[in-house]
């Protein structure tokens, strides 16, 4: 049920994001989703890619600090209130969201929400109980 995400440490200096995407492109790695969290001094880039191990390896080879974490991908209809419903379910179970980001799939019908929760196992249980669709890595890559 968990999807692997890679995270890359970024100093706030120009061209770093471009370098990362270039490295991934050269190695035929497809980015499915990404988000950047930033502060005044540094940033954290999070990526969902089709080839996780390969991506980690090539980025490390190119001198980046790379971490791997598990996140949960929830599929919702791309209409008003889609995210609100998920968050309500999570709130009722008193689970905190560490971070989240989203993307819309190619058909434009569904949105995929990527979550990192404080309590991942409980979150999966809660989301399943409330009838949400949780995607596997294969499903995400197939989108």
């Amino acid at each position: 049920m968990l999807v692997e995400q890679i995270a890359v440490f970024l100093e706030n200096k120009s061209g770093r994001l471009a370098e990362i995407t270039a490295v991934l492109a050269e190695n035929n790695i497809n980015i499915r989703a990404l988000s950047v969290a930033d502060t005044a001094d540094f940033g954290i880039l999070r990526l969902i890619v089709d080839k996780v191990e390969k991506a980690k390896e090539v980025l490390k080879d190119n001198g980046f600090t790379v971490g791997k974490t598990s996140v949960i991908a929830v599929e919702v209809d791309d209409k008003t209130g889609g995210l609100a419903k998920v968050l309500k379910s999570i709130k009722n179970a008193s689970i905190n969201v560490e971070y989240m980001y989203a993307f819309v799939n190619k058909t434009g019908e569904n949105a995929v929400l990527i979550f990192r929760f404080e309590k991942m196992d409980e979150a999966i249980e809660t989301l399943q109980k409330d009838g949400f669709t949780i995607l596997t890595r294969e499903q995400i890559c197939a989108l």
């Binding site: 995270a7 440490f9 502060t39 540094f42 954290i44 971490g67 560490e98 971070y99």
Partner: peptide
Amino acid sequence: EVVESIFFDEMRKQR
């Protein structure tokens, strides 16, 4: 220098 052992994907933890 940020090495893997001191890198976190969560901003809260990194800060």
